[in-house]
Amino acid sequence: MEVRTIKVFTTVDNINLHTQVVDMSMTYGQQFGPTYLDGADVTKIKPHNSHEGKTFYVLPNDDTLRVEAFEYYHTTDPSFLGRYMSALNHTKKWKYPQVNGLTSIKWADNNCYLATALLTLQQIELKFNPPALQDAYYRARAGEAANFCALILAYCNKTVGELGDVRETMSYLFQHANLDSCKRVLNVVCKTCGQQQTTLKGVEAVMYMGTLSYEQFKKGVQIPCTCGKQATKYLVQQESPFVMMSAPPAQYELKHGTFTCASEYTGNYQCGHYKHITSKETLYCIDGALLTKSSEYKGPITDVFYKENSYTTTIK
């Protein structure tokens, strides 16, 4: 009895394709271990004539594949690729409408935090270190965002349907971005203890939790000093293409032309909904596939993004 075979390709990165001759009487799992086709788990399936010449994702289970996976995804987590594939199996079914010149995501599976993050990423200057993220990001900007969303979920250790947080998501993504040249110098002034300067680099240099107003941050924000008295913390120097200011959701007025974009969060910790506000020729609110415009805006804002380049204080 002759062994019926077909020729397929296996890959971990969709760049390096490895030619395989597979036995049609055995499952993919018996031949390769966990195997995925377009995100779908085909591990328990036997090869079919229609699979001839198709590319299958496999887990990096030998040295060659491990090197290829690390170079593309910059992670050695053995569960990463499987999590990416199972997320992709959902995100490829989502709709990605162009809204006001940006790629958004039609609401499904509690994905409003991903839509808000995706919209924000198209408006701030950011370059990702893992080629996987950078490639998928370019495709997302062009309207094909399924891979990018699935990668975000995998890097953030999230599953489809789980509630997510924009600030946490951005923080994970910033860790995989090139923020080497970003720098922030802060000064804390206390009447009792004097003053202390701190220099922050990388992710810490672009994120701040405690106030939404970048102007206020430049002037000074009140913080408790270690001595128990009130101290003032203010920005001395900022070198970065953008800054992200966050605070627990509270009524906040966004003035046209003073910011790049913002995240609105309605609801409580267990259950809520994100919308995205962007400042173009007027203010726009993007909620999944829905767009509304207004000249002014007041609502429960939790993150505001500002364009920056270089700032030095005039406070002496």
Rank of each mutant, 00 (worst) to 15 (best):
F305Y: 07
A136K: 02
N16V: 14
P34C: 07
K275Y: 02
D63P: 06
Y113W: 13
A205I: 00
N147A: 10
N157F: 06
C193L: 02
T192S: 14
F80T: 03
L114W: 04
G29T: 08
Q222F: 08
C112H: 04
V188F: 04
K316C: 15
D109N: 11
F305I: 12
A146K: 11
F9P: 01
H51I: 00
Y84E: 02
K92S: 10
L163A: 11
Q31D: 09
M209P: 04
E296M: 12
T169N: 07
L37I: 10
H176K: 07
I6K: 11
A250S: 13
F9V: 12
S294D: 01
W94C: 05
V189S: 11
A117Y: 00
D13I: 07
Q134T: 10
S213V: 01
Q122K: 01
T64R: 12
T199V: 12
V236S: 03
M26W: 09
M244H: 03
M244S: 00
D109P: 09
A69F: 10
V12S: 06
M244R: 00
A132I: 07
K233H: 12
C285Q: 10
H256F: 11
G82T: 12
P130S: 07
R83E: 01
N110W: 00
Y208P: 00
P131Q: 00
Y155F: 05
E239I: 11
G161F: 04
M244A: 06
T198N: 08
A250L: 06
I45C: 12
E125R: 06
N187L: 12
M244Y: 04
H48F: 11
R167N: 04
Q222S: 14
L88V: 09
E215C: 04
A87N: 15
N157I: 01
K191C: 07
N14G: 15
T103L: 03
Q31M: 10
L17M: 10
Q98S: 12
H18T: 08
G143E: 02
N268V: 08
C190S: 02
Q123T: 05
S213A: 06
T75I: 08
A231Q: 01
A108H: 02
T282S: 12
N309Q: 08
R83N: 11
N147C: 09
L153C: 04
P34V: 15
V160S: 02
V304T: 00
Y138L: 14
Y311M: 09
P249N: 04
R141A: 09
S279L: 06
W94P: 09
S295N: 08
V189D: 13
V206G: 00
T120C: 15
L153H: 01
G101E: 02
R141V: 11
T103C: 08
R139C: 11
D63H: 12
N14A: 13
N147K: 14
N111M: 04
T292K: 15
E162I: 00
V189E: 12
P241E: 00
K46C: 11
P249I: 04
K219N: 10
C156E: 02
A146P: 04
G161V: 05
F32V: 13
N309C: 15
N89H: 07
Y72I: 05
V22D: 03
T64N: 09
Q237L: 12
V67L: 15
A40K: 12
S310Y: 13
A177G: 04
L37K: 11
Y265A: 00
K92G: 07
Y269S: 15
N49I: 12
Y297Q: 07
Y72G: 05
V203P: 14
M24H: 06
G53R: 12
F217Q: 02
K316F: 15
I6H: 07
H74M: 07
D180L: 06
T313C: 15
L102E: 00
V221N: 01
Y284N: 10
Y73V: 06
Y284H: 10
K233R: 13
T11L: 05
N100M: 10
R66V: 13
E2W: 14
Y72V: 03
N147I: 10
P131F: 02
L37E: 13
L119I: 06
G82K: 15
L163D: 07
R167A: 06
Y155C: 04
C182A: 07
F217T: 05
S263E: 04
A289H: 13
T19F: 12
Q20I: 10
V221E: 04
Y84T: 01
G33I: 05
D77N: 06
A250P: 00
L153P: 02
G33P: 00
N14W: 09
V188Y: 08
K275G: 01
R139H: 13
K158M: 01
G210A: 00
L290N: 15
Y113S: 05
Q251G: 06
L37Y: 13
G39T: 13
E71G: 06
T292V: 08
F80Q: 00
G29H: 08
G267W: 15
T266S: 07
E144L: 07
D23P: 12
G257H: 08
M24Q: 11
R184H: 03
H90A: 11
Y28D: 08
K44M: 13
T302W: 00
T120A: 14
L235S: 02
Y269P: 15
K93I: 00
G257V: 04
E308Q: 08
Q30L: 11
S25V: 12
Q20P: 06
S294F: 15
V8N: 06
H18Y: 11
I124L: 14
D165F: 06
F242R: 03
S181W: 13
I301E: 02
A140T: 08
L186G: 01
